[in-house]
């Protein structure tokens, strides 16, 4: 138990944010059996790669892979992004997107904890206008679900995400993280 104490807790997106609810009967959502369906985007493998959770060390994807450090996530592939922090997000570190064909629809940049994205935006404004690439600059917390939704819609989207320094998590997230590594019902 103690060994797991300092394991990072992954904030889960799969069960909380990235879901779309479609109801058979719009007026009464809970109108008996089979009338309401919940469709969790992250569990649909046809929709591509998505972010299930994030922590201080990295991201968990919906193919059960934990990515360590900042990453660049494409529709169905992922690359490590070798930068130290939000200060290094500039035209150079985004240079891959200048040469990609077909052209990207949008880049979602997750700035970690940095909530005031104005400076990042100011640095990248010329890049965005010169190469005609749309940018969405958000704290990582909201960049992950934004990427998931855009990817589910089938857009040519790229998420350039930096792990946040602080993570707000619930008891449910803590339990889910623990259950990945051990059987919590058995006392060891």
């Amino acid at each position: 138990m103690n060994l797991l104490a300092n394991r990072p807790v992954f904030r889960c997106l799969g069960n909380l944010l990235s879901r779309a609810i479609s109801t058979g009967a719009p007026l009464k959502a809970l109108d008996g059996e089979g009338k309401t369906t919940v469709h969790i985007l992250n569990k649909d493998e046809d929709l591509g790669l998505m972010v299930d959770g994030y922590s201080q060390v990295g991201f968990r994807l919906n193919n059960n892979l934990t990515i360590l450090g900042p990453m660049v996530i494409f529709q169905r592939s992922v690359l490590a992004w070798n930068i130290s922090g939000v200060t290094e997000v500039n035209e150079d570190s985004l240079s891959l997107f200048k040469v990609l064909e077909p052209k990207l629809d949008i880049i979602v940049i997750g700035t970690g904890d940095c909530a005031d994205t104005h400076l990042v935006y100011k640095n990248l404004m010329d890049f965005s206008r010169k190469y005609k690439i749309n940018l969405e600059i958000l704290p990582t917390e909201s960049a992950c679900p934004t990427f998931n939704f855009l990817n589910a819609e089938g857009r040519n989207v790229v998420g350039a995400l930096i792990p946040p320094g602080t993570v707000r998590y619930t008891a449910d997230d803590e339990l889910t993280s623990k259950m990945r590594y051990q059987n919590v019902l058995v006392d060891d």
């Binding site: 059960n64 990515i67 360590l68 992922v78 992004w81 070798n82 930068i83 891959l96």
Partner: peptide
């Protein structure tokens, strides 16, 4: 610049977890 800033991953599969969990790590 691409070679400097982008890396492919290496897989780290913790031995203890191989049979009990699906934990797989991918680092630069």
């Amino acid at each position: 610049k691409i070679l400097l800033y982008y890396r492919v991953f290496e897989m780290y599969v913790p031995e203890y977890a191989e049979h009990t969990t699906k934990a797989k790590f991918a680092g630069p």
